[in-house]
Every structure is written in C-alpha cells, then in structure tokens.
Design a protein around this nucleic acid. Structure first.
Length: 229
DNA sequence: CTGTGATCATTA
DNA sequence: TAATGATCACAG
C-alpha cells in the first residue's frame, strides 16, 4: 500500500495552506500516519499521552518544542487535537496553557495567555475511544475556529473570576467546578511539584502548578457548530 | 526544572 | 460512570 500523505517538510505559509493540509489528514488512521512517518505506534497511550498530538504536529509542520506561544506563530494559530467518541462528544477536557499565579495585578483578559492561545485554533477531532487501539483511531475533519462574541465573553468571565481568586490568595479554594466553560486544574509531573502563589494573608505559599482547561461541553459546541453535528 | 503534548484512574 | 485531581514523556 502506498500512501498519498506524508509529514510536512516545512511550516505552512498561509492559514489556507495549513487548513488544506489538515483536511487532507481526515480519514487516515494514526497507525497509517505513524508508519509513513517512521514512528512506532504504542499499544496504549498510558505512557505516550501526547503521542497523537505530536504526530499531527509533524504532519502539519508545527514547530515542535515547549515554547509558550502558538504552534504556528507566524499564522497566529494554535493546534489542538481533540479525542471524541462515536457521537462527536469530546472525551477529555482541553488543556489551554499554564496559569500564572503571580504578578497578575492589572493583567486584563486581552493580555492573558488564555485569550492569546484561543484567538485562532485549528481543532483536529480524533477517535479517542479507549477500546480502539491507538493505531486504529481515525482522524476527523479539521475545524478552524475563532471564538464567537458569546464564547469570548463566557471565557472572559471565567478567566476573570479565577484570576481574581488567585490574586486574592484563594487559590486553594478554586476547584475544577469554578467556571462554566473554563476550569483550573493541577498541571505537573506529579503531586510533589510545587510553585509560588499568593496565600490567604497575602504571604507567599507553595502550591501545585495549575493549568487552564476547556470543559467538554464548550469544545463540543465549537465542533458541533462547525461540523453541523 | 518548566511548559507542551495530553490521558489516566480514583473517587464522588 | 463522569469528572476531578494526578500523572507520563519529551523538548528546551
């Protein structure tokens, strides 16, 4: 079997080119893409949690690495793979970015990491059912998205509420239930990792690093509107 | 050692 | 059984 798809040799020049490339991936299984790239397909993702995302980065020509900026800086586009079930419902929340816990005084929504990352997102839905081996999981149709005014204000409200509580030293009282579309959750190698934050009396405390995540229902709406599910 | 790619797995 | 809190691998 010869494949008509192959990893990118350069970053896409335009957003249209990126979108065309992404759409061309639809219908391929991760196993096919991995083989063509010379990657080994893991039996499960337990010890390869970012494998699918990184494989698609390779095919789309995203700059690899852990830099705190968009995947396609020159296009201002962020890439997100989103595992879904047979009904198109996301199986996981979507990690957005690390949450700054210090130096937040005066930071406005428009300057926030969350706002910056979500201005333009290329979503790639992917079969994420655990009963399906990773190699058999098929890539879905890519969606290029920017938040609607309603979505933006929902995100802004949650971000402002969470940020205010961080600034006021209430971080230990923020749970994954705070916020309606955005949530704050631990984001670290394990529970022993600590970072500085503001305590209840304004003093410095140590706490687990946090990240912002999009709730499933929000992501579902984004995909549903674009794909007319 | 931190941030990005995320999914896992215990528990409510 | 869905969601929260925990965790894994790798790049830089």
């Amino acid at each position: 079997m010869n494949s008509s798809i192959s990893p990118a040799t350069a970053a896409p020049t335009t957003e249209a080119e990126l979108y065309t490339r992404a759409r061309a991936l639809a219908g391929y299984s991760l196993g096919q893409l991995a083989e063509q790239a010379g990657w080994v397909t893991p039996a499960h993702l337990r010890q390869a949690k970012g494998w699918a995302g990184q494989l698609l980065e390779l095919y789309l020509g995203a700059s690899a690495g852990s830099r705190q900026e968009q995947d396609f800086p020159h296009l201002g586009v962020e890439l997100k793979t989103i595992p879904i079930n047979a009904s198109g419902m996301p199986l996981e929340t979507t990690y957005v970015c690390i949450a700054p816990l210090l130096h937040l005084n005066g930071v406005q929504w428009e300057q926030s990491n969350v706002h910056n990352k979500l201005q333009r997102v290329l979503w790639i839905p992917l079969d994420g059912r655990r009963e399906v081996p990773p190699g058999d999981r098929v890539v879905g149709p890519a969606v290029l998205w920017s938040p609607t005014p309603e979505q933006n204000s929902a995100l802004q409200q949650d971000w402002e509420e969470i940020t205010e509580r961080i600034v006021l030293g209430q971080i230990e009282h923020i749970t994954a239930r705070t916020g309606t579309v955005l949530q704050l959750r631990p984001k670290a190698a394990d529970g022993t990792v600590l970072t500085d934050a503001i305590g209840p009396n304004g003093q410095m405390i140590q706490t687990r690093p946090r990240g912002y995540y999009l709730k499933k229902e929000f992501t579902f709406q984004v995909l549903a509107e674009a794909l007319e599910l």
